[in-house]
Simulated assay, not measured.
Amino acid sequence: MSDSDLVKLYSGRILALAADIPHLGRLPAPTGTSRKRSPLCGSTVTVDLVLKDGRVAEFAQDVKACALGQASAAILGGVILGRSPAELEAAREKLRAMLKDNGPVPTAPFEGYEVLIPARAYKNRHASILLALDAACEAASLSA
Protein backbone atom coordinates (compact mmCIF):
# COMPACT_ATOMS: atom_id res chain seq x y z
CA MET A 1 0.00 0.00 0.00
CA SER A 2 1.54 3.29 -1.07
CA ASP A 3 1.43 6.47 0.97
CA SER A 4 -1.10 8.03 -1.43
CA ASP A 5 -3.31 4.93 -1.10
CA LEU A 6 -3.23 5.29 2.67
CA VAL A 7 -4.18 8.95 2.44
CA LYS A 8 -7.17 8.07 0.24
CA LEU A 9 -8.24 5.23 2.50
CA TYR A 10 -7.93 7.15 5.76
CA SER A 11 -9.77 10.27 4.68
CA GLY A 12 -10.54 13.09 7.05
CA ARG A 13 -14.17 11.98 7.16
CA ILE A 14 -13.22 8.46 8.24
CA LEU A 15 -10.87 9.78 10.90
CA ALA A 16 -13.56 12.18 12.17
CA LEU A 17 -16.03 9.31 12.49
CA ALA A 18 -13.43 7.19 14.29
CA ALA A 19 -12.87 9.99 16.79
CA ASP A 20 -16.56 10.34 17.67
CA ILE A 21 -18.15 6.91 18.15
CA PRO A 22 -21.68 7.09 19.61
CA HIS A 23 -22.79 4.84 22.47
CA LEU A 24 -19.35 3.80 23.70
CA GLY A 25 -19.31 1.58 26.75
CA ARG A 26 -21.39 -1.30 28.04
CA LEU A 27 -24.99 -1.64 29.16
CA PRO A 28 -25.71 -2.73 32.75
CA ALA A 29 -28.48 -5.19 31.77
CA PRO A 30 -28.43 -6.07 28.06
CA THR A 31 -30.82 -8.64 26.63
CA GLY A 32 -28.23 -9.53 24.01
CA THR A 33 -24.43 -9.31 23.90
CA SER A 34 -21.95 -10.29 21.23
CA ARG A 35 -18.20 -9.94 20.89
CA LYS A 36 -16.67 -10.21 17.44
CA ARG A 37 -12.99 -10.31 16.57
CA SER A 38 -11.19 -10.02 13.26
CA PRO A 39 -8.49 -12.71 13.28
CA LEU A 40 -6.46 -10.90 10.63
CA CYS A 41 -5.93 -7.62 12.48
CA GLY A 42 -7.10 -8.38 16.03
CA SER A 43 -9.81 -5.70 16.05
CA THR A 44 -12.69 -6.43 18.43
CA VAL A 45 -16.16 -5.00 18.94
CA THR A 46 -18.47 -5.95 21.79
CA VAL A 47 -22.12 -4.94 21.44
CA ASP A 48 -24.74 -4.85 24.18
CA LEU A 49 -28.33 -4.09 23.29
CA VAL A 50 -31.87 -4.24 24.54
CA LEU A 51 -34.75 -5.03 22.21
CA LYS A 52 -38.20 -3.74 23.09
CA ASP A 53 -41.18 -4.40 20.84
CA GLY A 54 -38.84 -5.86 18.22
CA ARG A 55 -36.63 -2.78 17.97
CA VAL A 56 -33.28 -1.71 19.44
CA ALA A 57 -34.19 0.42 22.46
CA GLU A 58 -30.76 0.58 24.12
CA PHE A 59 -27.32 0.09 22.62
CA ALA A 60 -23.70 0.28 23.71
CA GLN A 61 -20.47 -0.79 22.08
CA ASP A 62 -16.91 -1.36 23.19
CA VAL A 63 -14.72 -0.79 20.14
CA LYS A 64 -11.06 -1.78 19.94
CA ALA A 65 -10.45 -1.51 16.22
CA CYS A 66 -8.54 0.25 13.49
CA ALA A 67 -9.81 3.57 12.17
CA LEU A 68 -11.95 1.81 9.55
CA GLY A 69 -13.58 -0.43 12.15
CA GLN A 70 -14.10 2.58 14.40
CA ALA A 71 -15.68 4.56 11.56
CA SER A 72 -18.01 1.65 10.82
CA ALA A 73 -18.99 1.44 14.50
CA ALA A 74 -19.63 5.20 14.53
CA ILE A 75 -21.94 4.94 11.52
CA LEU A 76 -23.84 2.07 13.15
CA GLY A 77 -24.03 3.86 16.50
CA GLY A 78 -25.59 6.88 14.85
CA VAL A 79 -28.53 4.95 13.36
CA ILE A 80 -29.11 1.75 15.35
CA LEU A 81 -31.70 2.93 17.86
CA GLY A 82 -35.20 2.03 16.69
CA ARG A 83 -33.97 -0.53 14.12
CA SER A 84 -35.32 -4.07 13.91
CA PRO A 85 -33.10 -7.16 13.72
CA ALA A 86 -34.21 -7.62 10.10
CA GLU A 87 -33.05 -4.08 9.24
CA LEU A 88 -29.66 -4.80 10.83
CA GLU A 89 -29.31 -8.05 8.89
CA ALA A 90 -30.20 -6.31 5.62
CA ALA A 91 -27.70 -3.52 6.30
CA ARG A 92 -24.96 -6.07 7.06
CA GLU A 93 -25.60 -7.97 3.85
CA LYS A 94 -25.65 -4.75 1.81
CA LEU A 95 -22.42 -3.55 3.42
CA ARG A 96 -20.79 -6.92 2.74
CA ALA A 97 -21.92 -6.76 -0.90
CA MET A 98 -20.72 -3.15 -1.20
CA LEU A 99 -17.26 -4.15 0.00
CA LYS A 100 -16.81 -7.57 -1.59
CA ASP A 101 -18.92 -7.40 -4.77
CA ASN A 102 -18.81 -3.68 -5.64
CA GLY A 103 -22.49 -3.51 -4.74
CA PRO A 104 -24.40 -0.32 -4.02
CA VAL A 105 -24.17 1.60 -0.76
CA PRO A 106 -26.63 0.36 1.89
CA THR A 107 -29.94 2.20 1.84
CA ALA A 108 -31.14 4.73 4.41
CA PRO A 109 -30.58 5.03 7.25
CA PHE A 110 -27.31 3.13 6.64
CA GLU A 111 -26.15 5.23 3.69
CA GLY A 112 -23.32 6.67 5.79
CA TYR A 113 -21.31 3.56 4.93
CA GLU A 114 -20.57 5.14 1.56
CA VAL A 115 -17.54 6.77 3.19
CA LEU A 116 -16.00 3.28 3.30
CA ILE A 117 -16.20 2.65 -0.46
CA PRO A 118 -12.41 3.22 -0.83
CA ALA A 119 -11.86 0.19 1.44
CA ARG A 120 -13.24 -2.13 -1.25
CA ALA A 121 -9.75 -2.50 -2.66
CA TYR A 122 -8.35 -3.61 0.72
CA LYS A 123 -9.84 -7.05 1.40
CA ASN A 124 -7.78 -7.38 4.57
CA ARG A 125 -9.84 -4.48 6.05
CA HIS A 126 -13.32 -5.86 5.26
CA ALA A 127 -13.63 -7.99 8.40
CA SER A 128 -12.86 -5.04 10.66
CA ILE A 129 -15.42 -2.89 8.86
CA LEU A 130 -18.09 -5.58 9.29
CA LEU A 131 -17.40 -6.23 13.00
CA ALA A 132 -19.89 -3.77 14.50
CA LEU A 133 -22.78 -4.90 12.30
CA ASP A 134 -21.85 -8.57 12.78
CA ALA A 135 -21.89 -8.12 16.56
CA ALA A 136 -25.12 -6.11 16.49
CA CYS A 137 -26.88 -8.76 14.38
CA GLU A 138 -25.77 -11.55 16.70
CA ALA A 139 -26.70 -9.60 19.84
CA ALA A 140 -30.14 -8.85 18.37
CA SER A 141 -30.69 -12.51 17.50
CA LEU A 142 -29.77 -13.51 21.06
CA SER A 143 -32.10 -10.82 22.42
CA ALA A 144 -35.15 -11.76 20.36
Results as ranks from 00 to 15, higher is better:
23 H>Q: 09
82 G>K: 09
53 D>I: 00
125 R>N: 05
68 L>C: 05
49 L>M: 06
55 R>C: 06
53 D>G: 07
117 I>H: 09
25 G>E: 01
115 V>E: 15
55 R>D: 02
88 L>N: 14
75 I>Y: 06
130 L>G: 03
86 A>H: 14
70 Q>S: 09
107 T>Y: 07
73 A>C: 07
96 R>I: 12
85 P>W: 12
71 A>L: 07
139 A>Y: 05
95 L>W: 06
93 E>Y: 07
77 G>D: 00
38 S>R: 01
26 R>V: 08
19 A>K: 11
111 E>A: 14
109 P>I: 10
118 P>T: 08
50 V>W: 12
103 G>N: 06
85 P>I: 11
134 D>R: 09
97 A>R: 14
64 K>S: 10
97 A>L: 08
86 A>Q: 13
60 A>Y: 01
105 V>D: 05
57 A>H: 11
127 A>R: 11
92 R>G: 07
84 S>Y: 10
56 V>M: 00
90 A>D: 14
31 T>R: 15
26 R>F: 06
99 L>W: 00
107 T>R: 13
96 R>F: 15
116 L>Q: 02
57 A>Q: 09
105 V>Y: 04
85 P>M: 10
20 D>W: 08
46 T>S: 12
139 A>L: 05
56 V>K: 02
125 R>W: 02
131 L>T: 08
41 C>V: 04
